[in-house]
């Protein structure tokens, strides 16, 4: 009514209009690339022109060159890169296995669920890395404390996500399963696990991110080898080039790990097929 009687021409308000396909002829992914490259170029320029001291900021081109140099250095590969990636892989495997198993246990036992869920809910409020010093005193500086802290950091996100997955079986499917007289094992393999897969996969992806953070952070705080230690050591000994190259390598490694594991996990996720 009001549209017909109004003298103003009616215009659909902005919050209801569909998203424009392009702004200034560029789609969102193109804008993301432009913004990312512009940031890189700004850093390169700031460093090359001397706005920021070369001792503080290394141009990205030199970071990349130094990182490539590190990748051909066998001492760096066997001493820093491989141990870190190995630890991340081990943490991810342990946290993933433990997490899914623990979630299944919580799903089975009502008491366990009631007892742990409130604690799991506040778990990430507590900085888990605070216990790292305890473990260093108990086990010494080495692989064991890093592994324990990283697993402790990564496992809970796997548990909570997997539990959501186990809870996602529709009640009607469970009723059907009972009507078909499925055994406990059949129920597990034919109903429960397939239903939980998407959430378990989401939990495992987060678990990988948390494993990476856990390993690199503990190496960074206190350790004798690994990528995190390499960066901390480069900082302490004023090797700015090495420090930036290490940071760049970690970004690349984290990105590659995320993309490949996400692709692998995406294959078993029936929702994405």
């Amino acid at each position: 009514m009001s549209i017909l009687t109004s003298t103003r021409p009616y215009r659909i308000p902005g919050y209801l209009r569909p998203r424009p396909a392009t702004v200034l002829g560029l789609a969102p992914p193109a804008w993301a690339a432009v913004l990312g490259l512009a940031a890189m170029a700004a850093v390169e320029l700031a460093s090359r022109t001397g706005v920021v001291s070369k001792f503080d900021l290394v141009p990205p081109s030199r970071m990349a060159a130094r990182a490539a140099g590190l990748l051909t250095d066998t001492g760096f590969l066997t001493g820093q890169l491989v141990p870190s990636i190995g630890l991340i892989a081990a943490t991810f495997a342990i946290a993933g296995g433990l997490g899914v198993a623990a979630a299944y246990l919580l799903w089975r036992s009502e008491w366990c669920r009631k007892a742990t869920l409130p604690l799991l809910g506040v778990y990430y409020a507590v900085p888990v890395f605070a216990v790292y010093p305890i473990l260093v005193v108990l086990f010494g500086v080495g692989t064991a404390p890093i592994l324990v802290v990283s697993v402790a950091f990564a496992v809970v996100v796997v548990i909570t996500n997997s539990l959501t997955g186990f809870d996602s079986v529709p009640a009607t499917v469970t009723k059907l399963a009972r009507a078909r007289r499925l055994t406990a094992r059949q129920y597990l393999t034919k109903v429960l696990l397939p239903a939980a897969v998407p959430d378990v996969v989401a939990g495992l992806r987060l678990g990988l991110v948390y494993s990476t953070i856990g390993v690199l952070a503990t190496e960074f705080i206190l350790s004798t080898k690994g990528l995190g230690h390499f960066i901390a050591d480069a900082y302490h000994t004023f090797r700015v080039d090495d420090m930036y190259a290490g940071i760049l390598l970690i970004c690349v490694v984290a990105l590659i790990l995320n993309v490949t594991v996400a692709a692998m996990l995406g294959r078993i996720d029936w929702r994405r097929r």
Binding site: L216, F220, L227, A232, I247
Partner: peptide, 11 residues
């Protein structure tokens, strides 16, 4: 966000 942020602390 997916970069382990700790390693950026020296910056």
């Amino acid at each position: 966000y997916s970069i382990p942020k700790v390693v950026l602390f020296p910056l």
